[in-house]
Design a protein around this nucleic acid. Sequence first.
RNA 1: GGGCGAUUAGCUCAGUGGCAGAGCACUGCCUUCACACGGCAGGGGUCGCUGGUUCAAUCCCAGCAUCGCCCACCA
Length: 927
Amino acid sequence: MQKTYDPQNIEQAWYKTWEERGYFAPSGSGKPYCIMIPPPNVTGRLHMGHAFQDTIMDALIRYHRMLGDNTLWQAGTDHAGIATQMVVERQINSEGKTRHDLGRDNFIALVWDWKEHSGGGITQQLRSMGASLDWSRERFTMDEGLSHAVSEVFIKLYDEGLIYRGKRLVNWDPVLHTALSDLEVISEEEAGNLWHMRYPLTNGEGFVVVATTRPETMLGDAAVAVHPDDDRYRHLIGEEVILPLTGRNIPVIADQYVDPEFGSGCVKITPAHDFNDYEIGQRHNLPLINILTIDAALNDTVPEPYRGLDRFEARKQIVADLGAQGLIDKIEDYTLTAPRGDRSHAILEPYLTDQWYVKIKPLAKPAIEAVEKGDIRFVPDNWSKTYFEWMRNIQDWCISRQLWWGHRIPAWYDQKGNIYVGRSEEEIRDNFNLKPDVELRQDEDVLDTWFSSALWPFSTLGWPEQTEELNTFYPGNVLVTGFDIIFFWVARMIMMGLKFTGKVPFREIYIHGLVRDNDGQTMSKSKGNILDPLDLINGIDIDSLIEKRTTGLMQPHLAPKIEKITRKHYPEGFRAYGADALRFTFASLASPSRNINFDTGRIEGNRNFCNKLWNAARFVLMNTEDKDCGSSGDNLELGIADRWIISRLNKTVQTVSNAFTNYRFDIAARAIYEFIWNEYCDWYVELSKPVLYADDASAARLHGTRHTLLYVLESTLRMAHPLMPFITEEIWQRVAPVAGVEGETIMLQPFPEYIQEEIDVDAEHEVTWLMSFIMGVRRIRGEMDIAPGKPLPLLLSCASDLDRDRVHRNENCLKTLARLKNIAFLAGSNDEPEDAAISLVGEMKLLIPMAGLIDRDAELARLDKELNKHARELERNTSKLGNKQFTANAPEDVVGKVKSRVSELETMIASLKEQYKRIDNLPVQQD
RNA sequence: GGGCGAUUAGCUCAGUGGCAGAGCACUGCCUUCACACGGCAGGGGUCGCUGGUUCAAUCCCAGCAUCGCCCACCA
């Protein structure tokens, strides 16, 4: 093995091997375990959010595969209607054409072509992460099978009256020319104005003042409303006003909706261009006056001068014209919330159109109950509140989109406008006995992308056919996703799953946080703080990183600033940390919090951790390969250290298994990290050296040590594999044969099991004692400034019988690890030398005679510090014991612990004081 | 307006009704035969604030402050 761990040397080769050998497919035996990947957009590039989410899913999948489950991680991508159409359209636009020049069929053919050649790059990137998806079953939401499922669902819902077509106001995107669902609307606060306009009364008695943020809509006003109890205006109810610029007369009406406190207390009512006004219009039978085109320009219903003007041009013109007529009362600055499309970012218009809707309440009811009853569990549970909140107030879902790319709505119209819904034109002609001379044309619209996503858990498994896969893997075990798509996706999958399979689509929903930069900011191009997971895996130099962050900016003037902060944060770009370090970092950050602030310091630390593991393996192999490791049981003797590390391994296996079960990947990662570094490397490997290098070690002890080094390492690799698949495989391939373990791959080895019998309390106590002994000597050495390599004589006083036994048993270890020349017991404290540095192990004293070389002041300072620390603790504890309430009310074991701690502290303090006096009495050295 | 979350070391974050933790950063010593992507030893905290419950609160409760997110039709 190379001296330094180099992820790039090992990772991709292993992935290729795994995939070629078909390790990712379900084994066909064991109990089913299934996760559906949230299908990334086919246009997508892997970002930190994906990388984080896929790390978690892959860890779960690998863990369950190693538990022997029949494990499926369903792969696939989403056709992402708007996003994909925009990508291809942009391409055509750059050639000076529009999609309309091509026509619908040609355009769709082009999108498919794009998908074949450029789409799905993200699936390659997932492979770089080590994601063990079953690619042999990869699906696409526009596949034949999935499209079939979509139309079956649409038809069934339509037949049951749960899908309907209706003319009403929708959120209209004037750039993309499509309707959007409520969820696709982003409300943003923006600076704007509130215009107060005067509408003259027809009775000649002055005018009323109405306020609006969108003056141009006044051309579509159908009424002015006041509150019925508003004394200022009560006399006007039933009167009419002249709508300026149009000459139309409109009524003054009374409606509870009006807030008399706001503005003038009079509201202009524009039923065709405002959701509230629409409701009021319905109540009062007002006409719907649509004044906009699909581009949000003014149409031909408005007076001639304004026709064809863009809405914002029209606004200026209308304000100017009203002002000229003295009809502007005042203009205020005002902060309004503007609705924008989540894709186009254009300001949306409420717009009157025919659209398809899902009547959602009947579907929501059982979906709410499923979570209430516990058929589905949110992890963390708190998210169920968010779910309930939305589901209980859910509105009908607008599912039609005026796009070309997507599942076309399976509805046809005849010339009279009758609607026929069915699988095909032929089927419809059959079912409805339509003569050949009846002309049918299919609905032009396609379905919201999320409609097909909602079917993903069962459509990927072959539904509506009752396939074996469906029977085996549905419902899935867990859905892993971010809280940002609980409404878009999670809720809709639950509703559709229950409706069409009668079962929930998954038992648990693990909601993870969203990845942000290390300042807690969302990562975005314009902030210039985007981290690309592939750059962290493969490394990137600073110039390339800056180029990546500054090209293609919407606001190019930000480039210098972005370059500056990038150079400041990452002066040398990124080293190639490798997928394992990245995965391990994500796992250790996966605590149940809403935000995952990605700190690049963590990934560096974890790359170092990989290197540590790598070198521990080198050490083990150096000392075991081609050596007798005593594979047969009777020539093995386990020492204290061996029993201890095996015990600790089991404890760690238990912690890690529980952590995986509870979705606490941070706990799993920490347990693995601490076990490997702080226990196996820092202590066990060091404790093994005195045995391995001793001249007189028995064959049985040598075998025991070599065996344990291998056994624990091999088990640890399996334990760490779900989080760090590549490095564990690479090392395992070398270690397993030496350890006598057979198998083609670590992936399909069993996950280590917790073995109660291997927990060894005695060994744990003794090694804890050993550590405190060794650390005591080291502390003296460090603080007395004694060279690390210099062997020291050690005297022990106040040793118990147990201390003596332990010293004798572990003399070799103690001498090596603490670098001792010799160890001697003193008969009594009277024999203690005057000038010695002291440290305590329990009540036993460790003394290093300084033979006149002691740094008196340094030692006094050291003792003083120690004394202070213990005195403070003693003070705390004695005052507790002095408190009758405490001794009376606290549980017995707590009181007992405090008591024994007090007596221990008293002894220690006495020892230290005595020592202090002794050093203090030494003659001051004369230089 | 409604709902949810956060506040712990310089930074990023764990944590528990009974001795405050990790990684990174920092200080000193060490290129010792697995590893300088390393070893050993250290420094660093009023656990946001104010009350309450309790023998005991960083943890439970109430209020406040600051920051953040989601939902909602106030022109």
